[in-house]
Computed example of a mutant assay.
Amino acid sequence: MSKLEEHLAEKGILLADGATGTTLFDMGLQSGDAPELWNVDEPDKIRAMHKGFLDAGADIILTNTFGGNKHRLKLSNDAHRVRELNAAGVDRAREAAAETGREVLIGGSVGPTGELFQPLGALTYEEAVEAFSEQMEALVEAGVDVLWVETMSAAEEMKAASEAAKDKGVPLILTASFDTAGRTMMGLPPKGLNDLRAEFSCTPVAIGSNCGVGASDLLAAILEITEADPEAIVVAKGNCGIPQISGKDLIYSGTPDLMADYARLAVDAGARIIGGCCGTSASHLAAMRGALDSHEKTDRPSVEDVIERIGPLVSPPNKAAESGESPRRNRRRG
């Protein structure tokens, strides 16, 4: 078994980390700057970010490499630094983990290219595989325990990432963002992720959902995924409550107590790897750690139960608006 599967067999439920982007913005990262540059330019801050999540009890931390492919890095004229920045991201995570005195899993974060595939855009399938392979090779060579592909939207891009992960020697986790009326931006429903897995060149050891909109919406997606395949190892990495605009700032409504309840509901819904995405700080994660340590799995919740305890759905499936537009995907995790 891989280290990930060994940890799951031993602990049953694993706690993943919180929001990279939110934490780094709080440390001074400016909007529009590439966070991956901080792996080299601000190593102490990246280690401090990881340390906060580790001190909160995370079993898995993700590298600061979400936008570490050449298509994203070209926006800052750093496409030639893919291997350097990804390797440095793994090094910073390993350095922080070494200080804990316990075994921690390092997930190599791989986000979307930010490009649209042909015929909607210019990116070819082969170019996507090439870009993902370049990043993944750097992550694996630097010593990640798992390749963690996240915030995916398009089936073609998920297939390209899975092909790139084939024969890399570490397990693959793949999560999608169901942020558009209960589907991904490109129209994939949560249950479709289970069906799509059979078409992947490298079968993920775990699938699930991250980011999106509110925590309730994410839990609704998890319920659909686990209903379609109760035996799947499922990841839930939801945003900290609901995003709200306050002046120039984006504030997330979730309190530590709310995120603790979210973690309990995620367990009851069938998730086995649980963490936080945008807005989730170390203090939120500590509350989630406490909830997971004290919670015994109980009856499977309904969507109505989730709404009652966590809050309303931000993007209900039955209110989907038909749109022919396919916006360029420039989102960042956290």
Score class of each variant (00 low, 15 high):
residue 102 R to A: 11
residue 123 L to I: 13
residue 244 Q to Y: 02
residue 123 L to K: 08
residue 208 G to T: 12
residue 30 Q to T: 12
residue 78 D to N: 14
residue 304 E to Q: 14
residue 123 L to R: 09
residue 153 S to Y: 00
residue 324 G to T: 08
residue 246 S to W: 00
residue 307 I to K: 14
residue 184 T to W: 01
residue 153 S to G: 10
residue 169 G to E: 15
residue 38 W to H: 07
residue 116 L to T: 01
residue 294 S to L: 09
residue 181 A to M: 00
residue 332 R to D: 01
residue 22 T to P: 00
residue 47 R to H: 05
residue 180 T to V: 12
residue 82 V to L: 11
residue 208 G to E: 14
residue 290 G to W: 00
residue 30 Q to V: 13
residue 56 A to F: 02
residue 66 F to Y: 14
residue 203 T to K: 14
residue 8 L to P: 11
residue 92 R to L: 06
residue 266 A to H: 04
residue 224 E to P: 09
residue 324 G to C: 04
residue 105 L to Y: 08
residue 46 I to D: 08
residue 234 V to A: 13
residue 288 M to E: 12
residue 205 V to A: 15
residue 44 D to Y: 04
residue 42 E to T: 01
residue 150 E to G: 05
residue 265 L to M: 15
residue 112 P to F: 02
residue 193 L to F: 09
residue 300 R to W: 07
residue 201 S to M: 03
residue 263 A to S: 15
residue 267 V to Q: 05
residue 296 E to G: 11
residue 104 V to W: 07
residue 130 E to Y: 01
residue 157 E to Q: 04
residue 91 D to Y: 07
residue 299 D to H: 13
residue 189 P to N: 04
residue 301 P to Y: 03
residue 283 S to W: 02
residue 164 A to R: 12
residue 7 H to P: 00
residue 130 E to L: 02
residue 170 V to D: 03
residue 224 E to I: 06
residue 44 D to R: 15
residue 145 D to G: 04
residue 170 V to M: 09
residue 47 R to A: 11
residue 24 L to D: 12
residue 142 A to H: 03
residue 19 A to Y: 01
residue 15 L to N: 07
residue 135 Q to S: 11
residue 246 S to H: 12
residue 116 L to C: 07
residue 206 A to F: 10
residue 304 E to K: 14
residue 100 T to Y: 03
residue 293 D to T: 11
residue 170 V to K: 05
residue 214 G to M: 07
residue 222 I to T: 12
residue 325 E to C: 05
residue 198 A to L: 05
residue 143 G to I: 08
residue 320 A to Q: 13
residue 39 N to I: 10
residue 174 L to K: 04
residue 230 P to Q: 08
residue 130 E to W: 00
residue 87 A to G: 13
residue 115 E to S: 07
residue 239 N to D: 07
residue 65 T to A: 12
residue 197 R to F: 07
